[in-house]
Design a protein around this nucleic acid. Structure first.
Lengths: 219, 219
DNA sequence: CGCCGCTATATCGGATCGATATACTGACCA
DNA sequence: TGGTCAGTATATCGATCCGATATAGCGGCG
């Protein structure tokens, strides 16, 4: 699931690990709580699978072939004396910039449209990345989640009515059910918006969804 | 976190693994999605820590006279566990009945009041088990969560306003924020109910919270 | 001058999950 | 009579994820 978030961010531009973590937290909305203990293994996985490539950048160094066996302290002294050029903040140290490959794009599309993991976090993540999906795939994603939520809501309602629960457990269950109902209403609104959008755009036949964004972008 | 759920259920009666799983799912409200791959290691952990003891029951016990296994308390635990009104289903095979110990009760109280893990699932679980908490500990739990949620809500609001998000990611964020607000309102209601309860019961000084349940029980 | 805080990569152990294996039983059906 | 399915029950496997921690450079603050 983390792989999907990473690939979704790298679809836009190449990034290094620390930046990926920040963007996942602030763009994909705290739904995925990335820690380095999961991020770096995930990046290693994706690299081993050929989905991303890495480019190691030496800190503010010219692209000249710096020998790895050379005098390290000398190198550092040079770097320290050279001062920072353009970047406004942050101690620039060696970074690994990750770039998505064609195989990565294929894997991303597969993970985004695939059926794996229908929990709340995965679903929110998929919706956040829905602009990369075809309109009918968007509707399919939303309706699949709607069905699951409806089922779960029935189960929770049955458990709330049937079991002998004290007031605290009952309150938790009722609150859970209310949250599910709110989720369902939200998904229904999304489905409606999607359907009206499809009915409008039936004339177009572009296979690229990057030009089909709806309103809400910042100019 | 699963340890807390298990101990909370065993506080009431001894249970075997399969039954624990079912009760966690239907009593603690699908908040904790227990799988056997996490349940049995957790039970083994608790047994190794001395928090629970196990009593193995011989398989296919003949109906009328239960074969003598020697341990009387174990037999009672089995009887309690299978005290179901009309269980016409189910192949009785060898079970391991888990019973909580004094050390387990101590650990349970520690986990329930402790500060570890303030995510939504842990919090819901703690509230579900709040009848085992002292009133002031209940208020402390609720207010701690309220503070965390308020903080997170501010972060989400800031991220929603600041970043350049497309309509899908924006919708997810706004829905997340609405869910947080609903959570906060729910917690505020719980805090109010708790405070009024405390102000009523200031005269009593019973150290046992099992008699201080509020309304909502099934008669 | 030391210390704090930020950027940045990486690893460790433990917890959890989904899938799966094993085994026994009762029910349904032909 | 046999076959298959579904339910009960315990257990393990690999993969994944998380929190804590280590390492390291750097700027600013007092």
């Amino acid at each position: 699931m983390l792989d999907l978030a990473i690939l979704g961010l790298l679809e836009d531009r190449g990034l290094h690990g620390y930046e990926i973590r920040r963007r996942v937290r602030e763009q994909l909305g705290l739904l995925v709580n990335v820690s380095f203990g999961s991020l770096y293994p995930a990046l290693g996985r994706l690299e081993a699978a050929g989905a991303v490539t890495t480019e190691e950048t030496t800190p503010t160094a010219p692209p000249a072939p710096t020998p790895p066996t050379g005098s390290l302290s000398g190198e550092l002294a040079v770097l320290r004396a050279r001062r920072r050029p353009a970047p406004p903040r942050g101690g620039r140290r060696g970074r690994k910039v990750y770039t998505i490959t064609d195989e990565g794009r294929r894997l991303f599309a597969e993970l985004l449209a695939g059926e794996g993991a229908d929990d709340a976090r995965s679903f929110g993540l998929r919706v956040s990345l829905a602009r990369h999906l075809a309109p009918q795939a968007r509707v399919a994603l939303l309706e699949r989640r709607r069905g699951v939520l409806g089922q779960r809501l029935g189960e929770v309602r049955a458990a709330t009515g049937g079991a002998s629960l004290d007031s605290y457990a009952r309150s938790v269950m009722e609150h859970t059910a209310e949250g599910m109902e709110q989720d369902i209403r939200w998904i229904d609104r999304l489905i409606d918006a999607e359907r009206s959008q499809i009915s409008v755009g039936t004339g177009a036949k572009s296979p690229d969804w990057s030009g089909t964004r709806r309103g809400g972008e910042r100019p």
